[in-house]
Write a protein that binds this DNA or RNA. Sequence first.
DNA 1: GTAGGGTTAG
Length: 600
Amino acid sequence: MLRLFPAKFNGRTLLSHPPKPLLRLAFLFYPLLRSSPKCYSLVSETSLQFQPISSDHCDPLLSTLLVALKSSSSVSSCRAIHARVIKSFDYRDGFIGDQLVSCYIKMGCTNDAEKLFDEMPNKDFVSWNSLVSGFSKRGHLASDEGQYIHCCAVTLGMMSEVKVVNALINMYGKFGCTDSAFRLFWEMPEPNMVSWNSMVAVCTQNGIPNEAINYFNMMRMNGLFPDEATMVSLLQAFEILPLGRLVEAIHGVIFTCGLNENLTIVTTLLNLYSKLGKLIASHKVFAEISKPDKVAWTAMIAGYAMHGQGKEAIEFFERTVREGMEPDHVTFTHLLSACSHSGLVEEGKYYFRIMSDVYRVQPRLDHYSCMVDLLGRCGLLNDAHHLIKHMPLEPNSGVWGALLGACRVYGNINLGKEAAENLIALDSSDPRNYIMLCNIYSAAGLWSDASKVRTSMKAKKLIRNPGCSFIEHGNKIYRFVVDDYSHPDSDKIHKKLEELMRKIQEAGFVSETGSVLHDVDEEVKTKMINKHSEKIALAYALLVTSADVPIVIVKNLRICRDCHNTAKFVSLIEKRAIIIRDSKRFHHFSDGLCSCGDYW
DNA sequence: GTAGGGTTAG
């Protein structure tokens, strides 16, 4: 039986009559308290031990409950406990007030958080930090609000506090204001470990991996030894800067430092190998984890999904569930995405059904996106549209984007238009939405409509993100854009490309000019398409790599149909394994076929 | 000897 508040614990007298509302709370949330590592010391196997230190007996237990509440990921528990706390007490100040603000933010009740924060009479720098970090982590802070908070911190004399500056650095990082983050960091008299780690993270999150590595090196030169957070952020830098050999070197360092027992680091490494196209290496890393957790095995499923290995993802899922793993919403997102990337329609429908029926995981927007993608892939555009119209949540850009992608493949102009209009209504500043719509019109030969879309893009001053391809060779990364002549060996590369195109045309390859947006002659179109960055990278790879290693190309945008087809032919004719990672997934080409089954 | 704010993984 659960005993609450024993009279004595370790020889000390404990509170014998705790306030009744608290007693009810403690009973209700006993499992929650037990599951929170930070509160574990307060809660033994059989009883809830409680020892007040202040004259106000409510505070310690309520604080413990609130801390447990924050560390729990259960939103329903959050709401329940929060409702009861508010009913029984009215705390606006000090410790409890700060905790409540954090809880509100965690639950997504940003208005309540702000209201309470405004009402708090004695805000100190801890209160401010709770607010800043909570809001910036969840993207609930606008840039000017951030600057206002920075001003407050300065006027209230909080800038001497390292934790405050660290919170501001991270806030600016989340806004993409790297310059402000840099300035704050370099003005700090004594940055600590978290400050350095924050800088590495800020650089990684803002797509400047070289800078992340620089900060890492500077940190080492300052005599600091990297910890878990450093390694995770550093590893993530290599997602953008795919220097495979350097990653293997870092893997070695992780091993020799004994960090290979650290689940967080190892999971990041596993995920990184997947993203670099090395699924076998991911699997090896996973196999060496002694006690993989939910995050680690979800990462493995995500790896299979990315590489279009749906059957393997399902097998893996079923095996681990049998071993007692409890899947959550992220697990199902990747499992459904695996089904969709492999065209496993029936399996996808099955898992979508049982995720709530059997595993009690309610479908979220990501799951609906996967389902729309899954249905769209096999041409069931009306079913996909029906699902969107009848889903219980408000469809977001992911859901409409999945439909638009399917419309592009199947050339459905009407639905495509609807999807694109919804997308543009949701976010009129994302050039990709306009480009997709433009693509659909162009493919259907509706040049005047396509041109209207281009005009509205121009009017909004939206610039198309230029496509580029990366390839690693001899410890260097080479970047190619369309019609690129920047490489010193450009003449050779373009000669090789022309030769390659001639060869595959002889084997039956026909250019697919539908991917070219511009309303120009077929001949000009073919010329433009033949100089796409991934084709140049491919020709370069054929020139400099040996025949036995797979060619790995990384592209920032999605691969176009023509380049996809080219890679298929080249894999057949040159007898080479080609791996292309585009912005959405991996394509493994061999013997004239692609792992994506021509749908992406 | 207890409890709060700053960095990191699917």
